[in-house]
Design a protein around this nucleic acid. Structure first.
Length: 416
RNA sequence: GCGAACGUAGCUCAGUUGGCAGAGCCCUGGAUUGUGGAUCCGGUGGUCGUGGGUUCGAGUCCCAUCGUUCGCCCCA
């Protein structure tokens, strides 16, 4: 048997309704804040991700699906959404139409060890806003994320955490200070953190190892060493979140995994998903557009993991589709006549499900019941001779007789 | 990439010191010959994840492999 590739899966019809709730609710909320949909290719030149996400990040170093195409170009399946959005922004000269507010949703690919809520092909949706520099944009985006989560009914046990990662001006000095501190306490760090001390000391702050956490708590915090502009920005953000009545926690140890972030970083976490606790995460990346060759443009964005949202989604919101009218046909002649009638009704805009398996009336009725059809139309020998149909209301069992000629009018009254 | 647990019917699971592969749900037929749901009775459905090994005999023990789950890591 040929099966799905490890870390991928089918989303079967039993599950697609909740995915649609997810997608449709998100589209509504994003649109309400002025975001429009952007669709980018699922694969790009490998160099795009290497430069945007960071050549030394774990994602690029060991998690990308990278391959050479037949022309010899190195391509990669997208491991995240922002890089392609930035590429599209630059490539289409959109700095002339600021603000540019877009959302995307779709599959992403990372070669990771699969776990609950973590797949090799997974789905993210996210928003990116180009052109807005001040904390108003940050606060509004967080409000939007939380509104969406509330609308989805997944807001129980969620926490909004924020931090500031500083900017080019203040991160450098802070980094040397942090490095000096960590070097004094190198003995208490885990092996992995000792290795990344040189390369990426900031990441040590959110290591989950006990020794590292103890050190991290004593370490100098970025938020205490921000330059004036960054401090103002962060202060402005907290003031706005308070004004919006959005509860938040300042987590000075939160560091984003992707290299492009500066200033505001935020994360929405849950206690309901085990180790994969991040539901949504994002931040500001004011330097990325310029770094990627575009005209310097401030930007902020976030992404949320759709598998994780689907796991949390309030089942009460998901309405399973149920047919209004289910046609039961008994006998060959009735089957043919049923097909013709059903097409006439559909032509008139009336949806009809025709029992596709036939067999005894009992078994067809059972299938209609299983689908929770509101009405069943019965077409058997008796109805054939009388050129009519029996219409049964499945809720109360009442039955009325219809003639073929007048059925369209009577059925459209039902479907309305 | 590292550590651990688990893979038995479509689903959820039981299976004793190694001795005939089971239950519930689902599906299906009947009780009810043209009518769903409730009840009762019957039925279909298994390369026990896969491949080796030990043994008279393996779902059970051993090895390998694939997959899932949990933790690490990473992250949405």
């Amino acid at each position: 048997m040929i099966t799905t590739v490890r870390g991928t899966r089918d989303i079967l019809p039993a599950e697609t309704p909740s995915w649609r709730v997810l997608e449709e609710t998100a589209r509504e909320v994003f649109a309400a804040y002025g975001y429009q949909e952007l669709r980018t290719p699922v694969f790009e030149q490998t160099a795009l991700f290497a430069r945007a996400v960071g050549a030394t990040s774990d994602i690029v170093e060991k998690e990308m699906y990278t391959f050479a195409d037949r022309g010899g170009d190195s391509l990669s399946l997208r491991p995240e959404g922002t890089a392609a959005v930035v590429r599209a922004f630059i490539e289409n000269n959109l700095h002339r139409s600021l603000p540019w507010a877009v959302y995307y949703m779709g599959p992403m690919f990372r070669y990771e060890r699969p776990q609950k809520g973590r797949y090799r092909q997974f789905h993210q949706m996210g928003c990116e806003l180009f052109g807005a520099e001040g904390p108003l944009a940050d606060a509004e985006m967080m409000a939007m994320v939380l509104r969406l989560l509330r609308r989805l009914g997944v807001d129980a046990s969620l926490t909004l955490e924020i931090n500031s990662l500083g900017c080019m001006a203040c991160r450098g000095p802070y980094r040397t200070q942090l490095f000096a501190f960590l070097q004094e306490h190198v003995a208490a760090l885990c092996e992995h953190c000792r290795q990344r001390l040189q390369r990426n000391p900031l990441r040590i702050l959110d290591c989950k190892g006990e020794g590292c956490r103890a050190v991290a708590r004593q370490a100098p915090f970025m938020k205490d060493h921000l330059c004036g502009a960054c401090a103002d920005h962060f202060q402005g953000l907290t003031t706005l979140l308070t004004a919006l009545n959005l509860p938040f926690v300042v987590n000075p140890l939160m560091v984003r995994g992707l290299d492009y972030y500066n200033r505001t970083a935020f994360e929405v976490t849950t206690t309901a998903l085990g180790a994969q606790n991040a539901v949504a995460a994002g931040g500001r990346y004011d330097g990325l557009v310029a770094e990627m060759g575009g005209q310097a443009t401030p930007a902020i964005g976030f992404a949320m993991g759709m598998e994780r949202l689907a796991l949390l989604l309030d089942a009460a919101q998901v309405k399973l589709p149920r047919p209004d009218i289910y046609l039961v046909v008994v006998g060959d002649a009735a089957s043919r006549q049923g097909l013709v009638l059903a097409e006439q009704w559909r032509e008139a805009g009336i949806p009809v499900v025709v029992d596709p398996l036939g067999g005894s009336m009992k078994s067809q009725m059972r299938r209609a019941d299983r689908l929770q059809a509101r009405f069943v139309l019965i077409l058997g020998d008796r109805e054939m001779t009388e050129q009519g149909l029996l219409l049964k209301n499945m809720a109360n069992g009442e039955q009325v007789f219809l003639k073929w000629e007048t059925a369209v009018a009577q059925l459209s009254a039902l479907a309305a």
